[in-house]
Amino acid sequence: MGSLFTPLSWNDTGFILTGVWNTVIISVVAIGFGTLLGVIVGFIRAESNRLVNTLLGGILDIFRSVPLIIQLILFSTYIGAIGHPLEPFVAGSIVLSLYSMAFMSEVFRSGFESVHKSMQIAARSLGMSYWQTIFYIRLPIGLRAVFPSWLGVALSVIKDSALVSVIGYMELLRTSDQLISRTQQPLEILIGVGIFYFIISYPLSLYGRYVERKMAL
């Protein structure tokens, strides 16, 4: 009589690596779009008047205050219910990108606001246009100032990507979940998964330290 459970074996490597890969991919996509949109939204917030700011701030607050898991489920079921079901990867990427955008926009806004008005006047007095001042002065100085906070958000996005498993995306946590139900070896598997998350995040953290040291003026 064969056992209901089969122990963990080397044959599971491919399955686990798919999970690792999917976690990396959705994190890269979410951090990438989150950063891009975050810079734009952060800039708009730094530059616009009170009314626009209150409105934008309200929308961002929704993204920031509602738990990610609820956002994921609501979005993917709603979009399915209205007849446009999306791949778990696509739905997850959209929600995770917007979620990280909401946090990053605040980071970048404070970066843009940290560049003193007199610095911009000095640039304009050299004949630079408004947009040249943005691209050559305000953007690089502001981004440097908030790089450590940005890195913190990026690292948490990698870990938050685990939640995308609830809508059926086969990322690292979900792979491990399936392996656990098959093997009944949660301890080994969860430790292994933890190590994988560390391996994914640590290079980013190291890179951050390297960049910070390079930028320490």
Partner: peptide
């Protein structure tokens, strides 16, 4: 364009730190 004719230096030196 006009500001290219007029160099200006301020009380705060405003060096570009990057």
């Amino acid at each position: 364009k006009l500001r290219q004719k007029l160099g200006m230096v301020f009380q705060q030196w405003n060096s570009f730190p990057h």
